[in-house]
Computed example of a mutant assay.
Amino acid sequence: MTLHVVEETVLWRPADAADLDAIAAMHDRCSDETRFRRYNSGLTRLPHRLLERLVDPRLGVSLVAEVDGAIVAMGNLMWCGADDTTPAELGLLVEDAWQSRGLGTAVTRRLLAAALDAECDSIHALVRPDNVPMLRLLGGLDLPLRREWDDGTLTVTVDLAAKMEEGVASSLGR
Rank of each mutant, 00 (worst) to 15 (best):
Ser41Glu: 14
Leu43Trp: 11
His48Ala: 12
Arg49His: 04
Leu50Arg: 09
Arg53Cys: 03
Leu54Arg: 07
Val55Tyr: 01
Asp56Gly: 04
Arg58Asn: 11
Gly60His: 00
Asp68Tyr: 05
Asp68Met: 06
Asp68Ser: 14
Asp68Gly: 15
Gly69Ile: 13
Ala73Phe: 07
Ala73His: 04
Met74Trp: 06
Leu77Glu: 11
Met78Ala: 13
Met78Lys: 01
Cys80Leu: 10
Ala82Leu: 04
Ala82Val: 13
Asp83Lys: 06
Asp84Arg: 09
Thr85Ile: 11
Thr85Phe: 11
Thr86Cys: 13
Ala88Arg: 03
Glu89Trp: 03
Glu89Gly: 04
Leu90Cys: 01
Leu92Asn: 13
Leu93Ala: 00
Val94Cys: 07
Asp96Thr: 14
Gln99Asp: 10
Arg101Trp: 08
Gly102Gln: 03
Gly102Lys: 08
Thr105Ser: 14
Ala106Glu: 06
Arg110Gly: 15
Ala113Gln: 05
Leu116Asn: 01
Asp117Val: 14
Ile123Phe: 07
His124Arg: 07
Leu126Met: 09
Val127Trp: 03
Val127Phe: 05
Val127Tyr: 01
Val127Met: 08
Arg128Cys: 11
Asp130Phe: 03
Val132Phe: 06
Pro133Leu: 00
Met134Trp: 08
Arg136Glu: 15
Arg136Asp: 15
Leu137Met: 06
Leu138Lys: 06
Leu141Phe: 12
Asp142His: 11
Asp142Ala: 09
Arg147Leu: 06
Trp149Tyr: 10
Asp151Arg: 07
Thr155Lys: 10
Val156Ile: 05
Val158Cys: 11
Asp159Tyr: 02
Leu160Ile: 14
Leu160Tyr: 00
Met164Phe: 12
Met164Ile: 13
Met164Glu: 15
Glu165Ser: 14
Glu165Tyr: 09
Glu165Thr: 12
Glu165His: 09
Glu166Thr: 12
Gly167Cys: 01
Val168Tyr: 10
Ala169Arg: 02
Ser171Phe: 10
Ser171Leu: 12
